[in-house]
Design a protein around this nucleic acid. Structure first.
Length: 600
RNA sequence: GCCCCCAUCGUCUAGAGGCCUAGGACACGACCCUUUCAAGGUUGAGAUCAGGGGUUCGAAUCCCCUUGGGGGCACCA
């Protein structure tokens, strides 16, 4: 039994009834309500979660550390990694209080720019985690950077997340209400009082102090440290001022900031859901931390903690760029007397050069992708698969399927380069899965954009679009490609270069002869019936009579009629164009070729 | 400089000590289908699992070191 610890199917957790039943359905395993383990028949087919490395790392740390033998740890919840770890630790010292609380996660963007890809992905992982576990997903606006925050960005972020298909249970932007939820307000600018109040509490307990150093002095100190190759760190000059010293500095007209005392020589340890055990020495934290500016407005590290505590956030799921900041947060949670949430640090999305994705080097605004005709189904699917996979060979997954399969603890640790080609492929896959009505609806704004840009002369009717759909749907990598694909149908004239009309293996006289003959044939059939199936056979007969190759004649017609060398199937295209307009374009092409021949 | 994290095809990934001669997908090549473009099908090339040491009968997998990459260290978020 001991040997199979790592492979054992994790015991059922009360949080994961849904997971357990879905696994039972999928693998036909059954376990009675007594919790007895089913016979293991196909260990290989078990969900990976039961063998996740981070979980194993926890397990080994529990058994090995401190030279103590702990009883075999109970598995964290198979899917949410949030089982009753308190119990599992047995007699091991707890680094902080673990409480079995409701799962509450949040996305806390700052409205200082357009919705960033990375924010969208972090939001998605939080959302999937919340929905998978039946937890609460919260939206909080971190708008304390008043210089850069705007309502336009705020709108864009809200819209962007909604567009991707995420709704939250608490926060602004739900229905018509200004905000919903009983932990509000959800805008930090409306919570300012709480930060100063919290800071006062820390001040009172001497966990924080006033610091009178000016930005210039700090800057000078940093430069000095840099010059001597030391780590930048606050030297604690104001850490122990006497009342008299403070009064003197105040008299100079100095406005103090509030600094939080970072204890020296302490190791902060936490079990990150995606990374496993992490330990960081407090001496590496850069010294005492400013939590309130001299104008009394709070700083990020302080607001997150105060708010996460106040909002009873149970799991902080965020980008890896915050990993090194986590000890500061843990210290603040402790100082504030709050329960420390669990952390899960997601790998970063990378530029092609493997640096953290930035707008300088990559397209980062979700709105831009939307404008380029990516659809949310594909975007969400792609984002979810950046740094995570189901462990199976499934690639195309709807939001509902992602929610069902998502598992935070199997998220990858290494950063992932954003691959636009793969996104485009997924987008094409999802476009093909759209119903006709959906696709027509979604294409409409893109056709309107074509019109506005003057690339087409009028809008197709709903009926025209519907008729075109079968040949269009599988040819669209993005919605915005629609103009390129069928725009020629909605312009008055196409004027292809005569040289383009002449197929590679033909010369100009042959082309004129070919088009003329084809024009007659098409005119004949069209008088009787104007359908793709009717047009093709007589043209094929013509080819046979003249000994021409289909590719040549059809290409000449294609270019004459559409102005392009790549189009949807020719006969469908001509039908969509209409009898008269097809003939008119053929005539015009013949005429222009003739004129060209005469001048050369 | 200090601290932390990471390392499997070009890219996203599977992998949990023997199912690995390392699987899938994107991209790329060829072929089939074909009036072009797509889509689809078949197929190919592409990874000495960053390198080196251990542990083991056996290591992509566990341990150590090295190297490389990334992130963090603000009166930004």
């Amino acid at each position: 039994m001991a040997a199979s610890t790592g492979r054992r199917r994790p015991p059922r957790s009360r949080l994961c009834g849904r997971w357990a039943s879905s696994m039972r359905r999928r693998f036909g395993l059954w376990r009675g309500i007594t919790g007895q383990r089913a016979t293991i028949r196909a260990a290989k087919r078990w969900p990976r979660r039961s063998r996740s490395s981070s979980w194993r790392r926890w397990a080994s740390s529990w058994t090995d550390r401190g030279g103590r033998h702990l009883r075999a740890p109970r598995a964290p919840c198979a899917t949410c990694a949030s089982g009753d770890r308190g119990a599992a630790r047995g007699s091991a010292p707890l680094p902080y209080t673990w409480r079995m609380t409701a799962i509450r996660v949040r996305i806390a963007p700052s409205p200082t720019g357009p919705l960033h890809l990375g924010t969208a992905r972090t939001a998605l992982f939080n959302y999937l985690f919340a929905r998978h576990t039946g937890g609460t997903f919260i939206f909080r606006l971190e708008d304390t950077d008043q210089a850069r925050s705007t309502v336009a960005f705020e709108r864009e972020i809200l819209d962007g997340l909604h567009w991707l298909g995420m709704e939250w249970d608490e926060g602004p932007g739900i229905g018509d209400e200004p905000e919903r939820g009983s932990y509000g307000p959800y805008r930090q600018m409306q919570r300012l009082g709480r930060y100063t109040e919290a800071a006062d509490r820390l001040l009172e307990q001497d966990k924080a102090y006033h610091c009178y150093c000016t930005p210039e002095e700090l800057e000078a100190e940093r430069n000095r440290q840099e010059a001597t190759h030391q780590a930048p760190r606050y030297n604690g000059r104001c850490a122990h001022l006497t009342a008299a010293e403070r009064a003197a500095l105040e008299a100079e007209g100095r406005k103090p900031v509030v600094r939080f005392r970072i204890p020296a020589n302490r190791t902060i340890a936490f079990d990150d859901i995606v990374r496993g055990h992490v330990e960081i020495d407090t001496n590496a934290l850069g010294g005492d931390l400013v939590i309130l500016r001299s104008d009394a407005t709070p700083l990020y590290h302080f607001t997150v903690v105060v708010d996460d505590a106040a909002m009873a956030i149970s799991h902080v799921i965020r980008g890896e760029d915050h990993l090194s900041n986590t000890p500061k947060h843990i210290l603040l949670f402790e100082a504030l007397g709050s329960a420390v949430p669990q952390f899960g640090h997601l790998p970063l999305i990378l530029n092609p050069d493997r640096t953290k994705m930035s707008k300088r080097k990559s397209e980062t605004a979700v709105a831009d992708y939307r404008a380029q005709g990516f659809i949310p189904e594909a975007f969400v699917n792609y984002l979810a698969l950046l740094g995570w996979s189901t462990g199976t060979e499934e690639e195309i997954l709807s939001m509902a399927e992602l929610i069902e399969r998502f598992d935070l603890s199997t998220v990858n640790k290494a950063g992932a380069v954003f691959d636009r080609e793969r996104l485009e492929w997924l987008n094409g896959q999802w476009i093909r899965r759209l119903t006709a009505d959906e696709l027509i609806d979604r294409l409409r704004p893109f056709m309107e954009a074509e019109l506005a840009a003057g690339r087409i002369d009028w809008l197709p009717s709903e009926g025209e679009m519907r008729a075109l759909l079968p040949v269009v749907q599988e040819r669209l990598p993005t919605l915005s490609a629609v103009g390129e694909l069928i725009g020629f149908l909605f312009v008055k004239e196409v004027e292809p270069e005569p040289a383009l009309i002449v197929p590679k293996r033909w010369d100009m006289p042959t082309t004129v002869a070919g088009l003329t003959a084809a024009r007659h044939t098409i005119a004949e059939v069209g008088r009787v019936s104007w359908e793709a199936d009717e047009i093709e056979p007589p043209l094929r007969r013509l080819l046979e009579d003249r000994g021409w190759k289909a590719g040549d004649l059809f290409m000449a017609i294609r270019v004459a009629v559409t102005g392009r060398t790549a189009t949807p199937p020719l006969f469908d295209t001509m039908v969509a164009l209409g009898y008269e307009r097809t003939l008119a374009r053929l005539d015009r092409a013949i005429e222009r070729l003739g004129a060209q021949a005469a001048t050369s």
